[in-house]
Design a protein around this nucleic acid. Structure first.
Lengths: 228, 228
DNA sequence: TAAGTATTTGAATCACGATTCAACAAATAT
DNA sequence: ATATTTGTTGAATCGTGATTCAAATACTTA
């Protein structure tokens, strides 16, 4: 039998398994068995912990968002200069590439949010929190005289998050000419106009394997005929 | 028996039925029977025309995008003034509300595009076309001396489309404080910075029932427990 | 160590969607 | 009018995933 775990531990594991399974098969296309397999358990065990699958899926999305947001906060926590803070924040809101797990999960929700209130709220809440994050950076920068805001800080912040989101989708969809770098550059163009600051990207340390976001996509069932 | 139709007619009908069904149940969550029901046929009839469901779904998405794009082009076709053209274009890229069928369909694809190459390409292509559309408007405005572009026209165009997209998602997700009007206003803020033009919205004719986009969502099966 | 409790399995069952196809009906051609 | 082709149905079948649950297993506690 698979290593037995405490209720709490197992639930955490399941949430993570669900997250992985959803990324592979879609937020609405996942099957119980896929989650079970991802967790190394049988479907019965999953149901034992989550009699209603939907609860698990929601928790998984919630956890994914929380993780995504926390990572962003963490990345800018040490930075003092508002300009560098802004640049770093922009980068941290974009996927590293088409396979970035964190953003993939968020993108999955886009469509479902229109049909499912819970998902809509989840997404909306995340958006608002991100706006607040940017707004703080902008306000502090303005207070320090580093930024000369070309408008309301909330308006700018909303547009920044919106741009991030949209380019996230583009990158996930493998747009041929828009990758993380191009997206950063495009968003920075807007940020410069809005802050009146040159926002030079420090060519600084981008060490090889620091990020924790990336996920495996283990030799998983390729669907037949996806590309006609 | 249901009115018999020619092959071509039926295919068109099926594409539309699929479009409606996907909006209600998700691009990846639709079932054959739901499409059949939407078309007023049995599943067998659907299969007769589309032995592989995926082909139908792809065609439906394709058609939806084409329609969406054509509508936008049509709306600006009569307008001469670049500023009004720009404003109208921005508005036409946003959903009318959370239930706007055209945009709902596009949002459905967001997640799937990461897993399905065809969908990714479809979405990417639409994005590029929209960018080109904006770019033309910007270039003409600049050539006429109406706009003083604050940067590369492609860069501005890309950001405009990106903003549209992102606010589309927000509106579909029923963000409490972002509706079509707020979104237009936010995007216009960016457009003003980029074009150096005041871009006053004409309080002009917005007749009641001109748009053709809106779709019914006929008393369709509400899923249980969507909101926990 | 023994009793009790919590977790997991595996098999059985259930429910539902996809697929097939013979029969039928409507159009079209002869 | 008759034959032929085309589109549609409805029922049968198949496959798969969800759900249930008794039995087995691993922990915990007394």
């Amino acid at each position: 039998m698979t290593q037995r775990k405490s209720r709490a531990d197992r639930r955490v594991e399941l949430i993570d398994a669900a997250r992985r399974a959803m990324i592979q098969h879609g937020a609405e296309g996942v099957h119980l068995n896929q989650i079970a397999e991802e967790a190394g358990l049988t479907s019965g065990a999953v149901l034992y912990h989550y009699p209603d699958l939907r609860d698990l899926l929601i928790e998984a999305h919630h956890a994914g968002m929380e993780r995504f947001y926390e990572q962003r906060v963490k990345k800018i926590s040490g930075i003092a200069d508002p300009a560098q803070k802004l640049i770093t924040t922009i980068r941290s809101g974009l996927p590293e590439g088409p396979d970035d797990a964190g953003v993939r999960l968020l993108c999955e929700l886009g469509g479902a949010a229109g049909r499912n209130r819970v998902y809509g709220t989840l997404l909306t809440t995340l958006y608002d929190r991100q706006v607040a994050m940017y707004q703080t950076i902008l306000e502090i920068g303005a207070a320090q005289g580093v930024f000369k805001l070309a408008g309301d800080s909330e308006q700018i912040a909303r547009n920044l998050v919106a741009l991030e989101d949209a380019y996230g989708y583009r990158i996930i969809a493998r747009h041929h000419s828009i990758g993380p770098d191009e997206a950063v550059s495009l968003i920075l163009d807007f940020a410069r106009m809005s802050t009146g600051h040159p926002l030079k990207e420090e060519p600084a340390a981008r060490p090889k394997t620091t990020r924790t976001t990336r996920q495996r996509n283990g030799g998983s069932t390729p669907r037949p005929r996806d590309a006609s």
